[in-house]
Design a protein around this nucleic acid. Structure first.
Lengths: 238, 238
DNA sequence: AAGGCTGTTCTTGTATACAAGAAAATCGAT
DNA sequence: ATCGATTTTCTTGTATACAAGAACAGCCTT
């Protein structure tokens, strides 16, 4: 656990699966002791995390694990929804036929997902194969580049999904929708895809429920005085 | 010119307007002398540039201004095309009416763009207002967040456009298309928007012409041995 | 002349000492 | 006890010395 890439991955996964709760302090000195590495390379890791939205940097005060930003969640859902409607539409309406190889890989993924449901403590595994399914669709449409791009700004949406999963055991429902979508593509029925994708991604973004049960995970847009750096402090503006 | 944000902006603009050509070396020591600042904060700036694709980092060898990646260009055009079709479609089909204020701002931008055409050496100014027009459309649809997100991965597309501009003086054509698009939205005619957006953004991605005239600006996918770091070197993987 | 070894000199990567800002704790006066 | 100024102690930001890898030049060998 000494390389920068390993540390980055470790912190990323701890933040994503909510072991590190929003608001937790990531101190440079503390982390440098934990990972037995000096502050300089560790700062590189924190910079990367900050750029991907995992942490908020308060200059000369500290780094906090970011609170889940529902605005970002809504925007990412819209982005994915719009793209996947188009992608699945193209795959279905057959200007380019779905190759047999791709079909098989998709079905394999869905089987893995079904297995994951049976396990207990299945959420992380299930989510992994859920992502794999959508990623494969992007890849088959020649849009893997965009999938990777989206993943770089996915912290808030990824954690939001995990909070929702905790409540509803609607894993079966999700899997069923995947099967339905694949069916439409294979039967070359583009007509229903738009509504299916729309419903699949907009898993009721129920802000009220979240604020009731996970208020301390969320970013309630408070006065600017409490917001992280974004201006001309000693920070880099993006 | 001592703050990190200023240096970042300076280098960004020099790379975007091709003063710093692809392949140019950005040495930490050289830059630290140029900007009278130590290597540590300067490395932060380079990290940011690397993350946004402005430079490629070859560990222990150097940092080169990235070559224009036509794959990225095509992906970004598709991304914007798909999003803007939906955005303009929504603005036109009127679930939410375009407010008077927004209409006026858009027309103002188009006037600025017309002024820019008359000036000589107009390209940079023209492009600025061109971006402003599209950005305003995103904002009016409540998608300013996504516009900003896209801008963070826009190096290759931005430079590609500048190379195209050098050849064709099709500034008037672009402006005319803007007027046409705005017209469709105001007249609530959503039918032609898709094809207009498609044509507007896919300004003939003529790879042959570029490779003929600007081969040394482009990233011809060479053998892996010449590619920048992306694996388990001493670098951070994204 | 060609090939390979070796040392020099580039580059970036890391560690650490110090500077500077912000918040908290302390101590004092009222 | 309460309020306020000062000091102390956190935090991150910066500078710099050193480590280590990569490329290059030169030389020697063949």
């Amino acid at each position: 656990m000494t390389s920068k890439a390993a540390i980055l991955g470790q912190l990323r996964s701890e933040i994503l699966n909510l072991e590190l709760k929003p608001g937790s302090i990531l101190s440079e000195t503390a982390l440098s002791e934990r990972f037995r590495i000096s502050r300089t390379p560790l700062r590189d890791v924190l910079k990367q995390l900050a750029h991907e939205g995992y942490i908020d940097v308060y200059p000369k005060r500290g780094n906090l694990v970011s609170y889940i930003d529902l605005e970002s969640v809504e925007q990412m859902i819209y982005l994915r929804s719009t793209l996947e409607k188009d992608i699945l539409g193209n795959l279905a309406s057959g200007s380019a036929a779905l190759p047999l190889r791709g079909t098989l890989e998709l079905k394999e993924i869905l089987e893995k997902q079904e297995e994951a449901i049976r396990e207990e403590q299945a959420h992380e595994t299930f989510l992994h194969w859920d992502d794999a399914f959508h990623k494969k669709l992007f890849a088959l449409a020649g849009r893997g580049y965009l999938w990777d791009l989206i993943q770089q700004s996915n912290v808030h949406y990824a954690r939001y999904r995990r909070l929702h999963m905790l409540k509803k055991e609607k894993l079966e429902a999700i899997l069923a929708e995947h099967r339905l979508l694949l069916d439409c593509v294979l039967r070359r029925d583009a007509s229903r895809i738009a509504e299916l994708v729309e419903h699949h991604l907009h898993e009721d973004i129920n802000a009220a429920y979240l604020q009731e049960n996970f208020a301390d995970y969320l970013n309630m847009s408070k006065p600017d005085s409490l917001k992280p750096a974004s201006g001309a402090e000693e920070n880099i503006e993006s």
